[in-house]
């Protein structure tokens, strides 16, 4: 792929804290390499801002290799930017052309309040996991890996769901700010395995209750979550969650 440099206009959401009203601000960055990642381009911009004594733009990031789920950013109308099955840190500047204007916004959801600029509070996801996204095991020696037979198809389906990195792009893309793709991935990956069986019913009921308490919306199966998920989690896991919920709701004491 040919390397090129570009000059860009950035329209970035700036907000001091959760109590103040935010607004967009225009910035210009020059000589950006097409080999850079989107976050590296933001590093360059922040260096510029620091040099002139301005407050740098706050954004979430950690591993910068697409596996931690820390980076967010709603870029040009899509969470994690224009590429499919991709995180913001793995979005590279060759996705853009010289002279482009890029609009960068934080995730928008009542359950994800803006902390500062592009950083939102995603601890609602942690509380949903705490409500039931685990299995209880006694301590002691690790169980022999081959002692528990698991159907290969189910193991694969479970692993596909376990790919979820909890970044919140599904919530950001959903018109209802629903967390159902996240929740369904977390419920399904345990429901598909024998280890998840003992807490299967209470897990789905408790996690749905916590999700509602956090103020996420309902799922209307539009498919926007699936279209933006960096780990390409299928929307059919939501249908699986619904069946888990229905079964648990009908049969639990």
């Amino acid at each position: 792929m040919e390397h090129y440099n570009m000059n860009l206009n950035l329209k970035v959401w700036r907000q001091k804290n959760s109590n103040t009203k935010g607004s967009f601000k225009m910035y210009r960055v020059e000589n950006i390499s097409s080999e850079m990642s989107f976050l590296e381009m933001f590093d360059v911009l922040n260096e510029q801002l620091i040099e002139v004594g301005e407050d740098p733009i706050a954004f979430d990031h950690d591993c910068r290799e697409g596996i931690c789920g820390a980076c967010s950013m709603y870029i040009d109308g899509k969470p994690h930017g224009p590429w499919h099955g991709n995180t913001t840190c793995q979005l590279h500047m060759r996705a853009f052309k010289d002279g482009d204007t890029i609009v960068v916004e934080p995730w928008r959801a009542s359950a994800f309040p803006v902390i500062k600029d592009l950083v939102v509070d995603r601890t609602a996801f942690d509380r949903i996991i705490q409500a039931g996204g685990y299995i209880s095991v006694n301590t002691g020696n690790a169980v022999d890996g081959n002692a528990l037979p698991i159907n290969k198809d189910k193991a694969d389906a479970s692993f596909d769901a376990a790919m979820c990195i909890g970044c919140g792009a599904c919530v950001a893309a959903c018109k209802n700010s629903s967390a159902m793709l996240f929740l369904s991935a977390k419920v399904s990956h345990l429901a598909l395995l024998p280890q998840g069986e003992p807490e299967r019913k209470s897990r789905v009921l408790d996690m749905v209750a916590q999700m509602d308490k956090e103020g996420f919306g309902s799922c209307t199966n539009t498919g926007a979550c699936e279209a933006t998920c960096p780990k390409e989690i299928s929307i059919s896991y939501i249908a699986q969650l619904n069946s888990e919920y229905l079964l648990a709701g009908l049969t639990k004491e």
Binding site: V103, A111, A173, K175, S218, T220
Partner: peptide, 30 residues
């Protein structure tokens, strides 16, 4: 549900919307 979902989305709207790239218009207009 419509009222709940609008509340969940919050007051501030996106400047650029995901729109038809992510879902069909009629699925968002039920």
């Amino acid at each position: 549900l419509e009222i709940d979902n609008r509340k969940a989305r919050g007051k501030v709207q996106y400047a650029v919307n995901f729109g038809n790239k992510g879902s069909k218009w009629y699925s968002r207009s039920m």
